[in-house]
Design a protein around this nucleic acid. Structure first.
Lengths: 221, 221
DNA sequence: TAACTTTATTAGGCCTGTCTAAATATATAT
DNA sequence: ATATATATTTAGACAGGCCTAATAAAGTTA
């Protein structure tokens, strides 16, 4: 299936999927352009192409959504991405904060056979090292997100970190260093009006900009 | 270093290296075209480009050789290829006859970090599962080939298979099935003038076309 | 060595994915 | 409701890597 779309197309489909899964609705040209680091006209022409090939539903000036075919490809690529991340951490001694770039490339280049072998070697995991759900082998299901964002919580809430979304490697390394990793417990100290959240965990007290706090998925306890 | 050449360029450099290492001299346009399954004009234009960028020494109508820069890239890609093949066999349960295609793609896409991790996980091997030598991490050395070809031997010679060169997967699988794999002992029964070699190993007696026999590297005992 | 065959190069075109500049549609604010 | 600002699309160009058809060089043979 994935072979029907070029590497670049796979990337567009994956990113459309990720944005929509994140907050629903449809994706605008500029949003996608920013996420993929290309110019808006490049996005427009790609969306036209993806629309013609029935990977997406695209209407001029109205944004884009995935069609069934496109969603399958997005899930396939995402499964590869997250299995690779998991494999790198479990078997090749990578830190969870540094696997993203490698997976972003390799996700397009492993065979179905390799996907299977990796999944077996890992015991068919359902979540990757960031805590993100891995689509099932038949791409029919992906664990539902039951989490809230750390940035949505209010002073006094005590939460457990479930996952940390993909961001720049440096940001993830910083978060790892201050103990903001999946599985850890955190208390919200205060939420400042100008977008700063102060937290306490076993390492002490830290402040994070709201944008970062929104990338940390948690469960209240 | 490898990043200076596109994926396609890396492939040309690797194949030039392999052909020259095989039999010395320089490589002709048509030979490269055949090996890479592209048309001769495509090769010509690529050689011009590689020449301009000082990856190869190319003179019109005179064939091509690698320049220092090109050889380094070829060795880097080859190291990746052979480490990946080894890794797939040792850690992901692949058979040695089916690793080539996967490695041919992934060799261009793993990072330096991943190369290192894979090499460490394997204990820095010097040979891949086909018996082919793996260039050293600094690309300064590659085990010299001390073998002869099975197809060069005469009736009565007893040899041990050292390696089996990369060929179509189906051919390698056939060879594996009849026990023609690295480490096994073989006796040359007869060599027919029309290019057929008859051999006996622990599995019985088999005949192979000379072309295939030339792909099997051995040591006489 | 002249004729012929084989090999290689030049010429010109195509597709993909990208870009910038210009034009146009939509959204916002007065 | 109109003017302005922002988002998006259209137009046109370019580089990379491939192709086929035509031409030219090299190699071979009578």
């Amino acid at each position: 299936m994935r072979e029907e779309a070029s590497e670049s197309m796979q990337d567009y489909l994956k990113n459309i999927y990720l944005i929509i899964r994140e907050r629903g609705g449809s994706v605008s040209t500029s949003e996608l352009a920013k996420k993929m680091r290309v110019s808006p006209p490049t996005v427009t022409s790609m969306l036209v192409k993806l629309g013609e090939r029935k990977f997406v539903k695209y209407e001029k000036y109205k944004g884009v959504k995935l069609a069934k075919k496109g969603e399958i490809i997005a899930l396939e690529v995402l499964r590869h991405h997250r299995l690779i991340e998991t494999y790198l951490v479990e078997h090749l001694d990578y830190d969870w904060s540094e696997v993203h770039e490698e997976a972003d490339i390799l996700e397009h280049h492993i065979s179905e056979k390799m996907e299977l072998r990796i999944a077996n070697a890992l015991g068919n995991p359902k979540f990757d090292p960031h805590g993100a759900p891995i689509p099932s082998a038949d791409l029919s299901s992906i664990a539902k997100d039951e989490t809230t964002r750390l940035g949505e919580h209010i002073s006094g809430d005590i939460v457990v970190i479930e996952r940390v979304r993909e961001r720049e490697k440096e940001e993830l390394q910083y978060l790892a260093r201050i103990g903001m990793v999946p599985g850890k417990q955190v208390e919200v100290e205060s939420v400042a009006p100008f977008g700063m959240v102060t937290l306490t965990n076993e390492n002490g007290t830290h402040s994070l900009p709201k944008e970062i706090a929104m990338s940390i998925h948690v469960k209240k306890i």
